[in-house]
């Protein structure tokens, strides 16, 4: 009896949370397109996010390309189609693995960062202080952060994809003496716009989700230091889940329009 009750109340809370998150997103769109715009703060956030994640994304991307190529090599070599490696690797990385893995990394780095930062600002009354001094804190803190992630995450993903391809090219160069020029020649022959465009479009949604959930959790943080930890933690969990859901929807929709 009590267990059933717990489960139903959990499910109820889940839907309430989705409702509140949607409301928060609606508030974002309302504030994002009304004056005044906080350009300076937006640029500062973009710089901060890019700067803080660049190395992480670079290293992850490099290892991703390296490992992925090393792992698929033997199978393709058995079949005698090693020459397919550049096209196969590039298509999988650009279309699916790169965006999802790097978005997950950004969820861990950026979304939790926003959750913790806004959460501690809420708990120590800094957000109230902003409001009292006549600045709209939602606009100054939330809108700028969501916009910054929506712009920066796609850039980070493009950067990470590129590094991953370099990692893969390095393996090919060391293992079977394929020059970088030849490798990238094959990559560009294999990649079509119908690979790149849908993959890039979905990264904007990833970025939006990362900023949205982090801000939502931090901005509505419960009092106390426990609240801050929880805000940052649940931000990562929810964002990661959302990234997979968005990915699923994106693949589904693009399948209809682009017949991939």
């Amino acid at each position: 009896m009590t267990n059933t009750f717990k489960i139903t109340s959990n499910i109820k809370n889940f839907f309430i949370e989705i409702g509140e998150l949607s409301y928060f997103a609606g508030h974002f769109f309302k504030e994002a397109f009304s004056r005044p715009f906080e350009f300076k703060e937006l640029l500062r956030q973009c710089y901060k996010m890019g700067n803080r994640s660049l190395l992480l994304v670079g290293v992850t991307g490099f290892i991703l390309g390296l490992v992925f190529t090393l792992q698929s090599r033997p199978t393709l070599a058995d079949l005698g189609v090693e020459s397919w490696i550049p096209s196969m690797v590039s298509i999988s990385i650009v279309r699916e693995i790169g965006p999802v893995i790097i978005a997950l990394i950004c969820a861990g780095r950026i979304s939790s960062g926003i959750g913790a930062e806004l959460g501690s600002m809420r708990v120590t009354e800094q957000i109230d202080a902003m409001e009292v001094s006549g600045t709209n804190p939602f606009k100054y803190l939330v809108v700028t952060r969501i916009m910054a992630t929506t712009l920066m995450v796609p850039l980070l993903i493009i950067f990470g994809d590129t590094i991953a391809l370099f990692g893969s090219a390095l393996v090919e160069y060391l293992k079977s003496d394929v020059s970088f020029l030849l490798y990238f020649n094959k990559v560009f022959n294999a990649l079509k716009f119908t690979d790149i465009i849908p993959a890039t479009i979905k990264t904007f949604f990833f970025g939006f989700a990362i900023g949205l959930v982090g801000s939502y959790k931090g901005y509505n943080c419960k009092k106390g230091t426990v609240g801050v930890g929880e805000a940052s933690n649940t931000a990562v969990v929810y964002t990661s889940m959302l990234i997979f859901i968005i990915d699923f929807i994106a693949v589904f929709v693009f399948d209809i329009f682009f017949e991939i």
């Binding site: 600002m121 009354e125 800094q126 202080a129 009292v132 001094s133 006549g134």
Partner: peptide, 19 residues
């Protein structure tokens, strides 16, 4: 917002913006 500029508010925990 305009009226708030006529009021100074010192918060219990100072609430300085730490960034």
């Amino acid at each position: 917002d305009f009226l708030r500029t006529e009021i100074g508010f010192l918060f219990q925990g100072s609430a300085l913006y730490d960034s």
